[in-house]
Design a protein around this nucleic acid. Structure first.
Lengths: 155, 155
DNA sequence: CTCTGTGCAAACACTTTGCAGCTAA
DNA sequence: TTAGCTGCAAAGTGTTTGCACAGAG
């Protein structure tokens, strides 16, 4: 357990920052103080923060940063695969009156949500330590990708 | 296969409407034409529509209905358990820089998202017919409920 | 008759876009 | 030097709230 080790990857923050720097160079994205600060803040957080939260936190040590930059940077991180948008968050509310157990596949391109049903997914077991800790109301298997209509012409 | 049978429940639309009417009475919610129309529209849709979409569709046969009513009604449906908000959608975008495989539990009350990791969930198999039809980029098990802090004082 | 539900308008929260000046490479 | 980045301001999208009237019970 040498230095600051991140439970999520086993890598220290420094190593992750370096990897990120490399990734930026690769894609010819500039290594700006703002970009580094946003990434670092996200790495250090375990709360799955939104733009606003990252902004507020960052502002303390980097008063000149703007919310727009944070927003844009987070989207960039998502684009290059250095982070991702937590499933389902972000778009408008959508509703479902189908109360039977089923699962959802969401197309990242056209945003369609397609129901499917796979018996094996109905019966997945929630581990005991979670059952003890939380009151679980719903469990779903959630898939994302390109749907049949979008997958040919991807991106 | 008598009459209009809904693939999701095996019940006809009429029966579901009746069940809904009963549920309204139970909770002393008024059975208004708008409320019935919204519920029916949602029942008949397989697209997991948002408020806007339900509104547009409804407007054709019910020109005086307002978007606010649709919005409020959909939330009511969610409250009484006649429908639900598709997982996670609706709030602001949230980000995660943890690239290791893991799963999320979201507290419906305080909105915290808590990472957990359960080996069995990493290896769930996507059925072949889905693999053939879609290009799956991400698969997750997503849990919702009350977290340890909220579950005591629920509601 | 009463009290909830509806429609309208305004307020909000979050995100996106256009642009001029700044800065990493 | 120059392409990409940042900060600001404005516009856009989706949701929520307050209020007066209408209509279900």
């Amino acid at each position: 357990m040498r230095g600051k080790t991140n439970a999520t990857t086993g890598l220290g923050i420094e190593e992750q920052m370096n990897a990120f720097r490399a990734k930026c160079h690769q894609r010819s994205l500039k290594v700006t103080p703002q970009r580094m600060a946003v990434y670092k803040a996200l790495l250090e957080s375990t709360e799955h923060p939104g733009a606003e939260a990252v902004f507020r936190q960052l502002r303390e040590t980097f008063p000149s940063i703007s919310l727009d930059t944070v927003n844009r940077t987070l989207l960039t991180l998502n684009d290059i695969g250095a982070a991702f948008v937590v499933e389902g968050s972000g778009d408008a509310k959508r509703f479902d009156a189908n109360l039977k157990i089923h699962q959802h596949f969401k197309c990242v391109k056209c945003k369609r949500i397609i129901d499917f049903h796979h018996e094996a997914f109905d019966s997945i077991d929630i581990p005991e330590n979670l059952m003890a800790r939380f009151a679980v109301l719903r469990k779903t298997v959630y898939l994302e990708g390109y749907c049949d209509l979008c997958k040919t012409k991807q991106k």
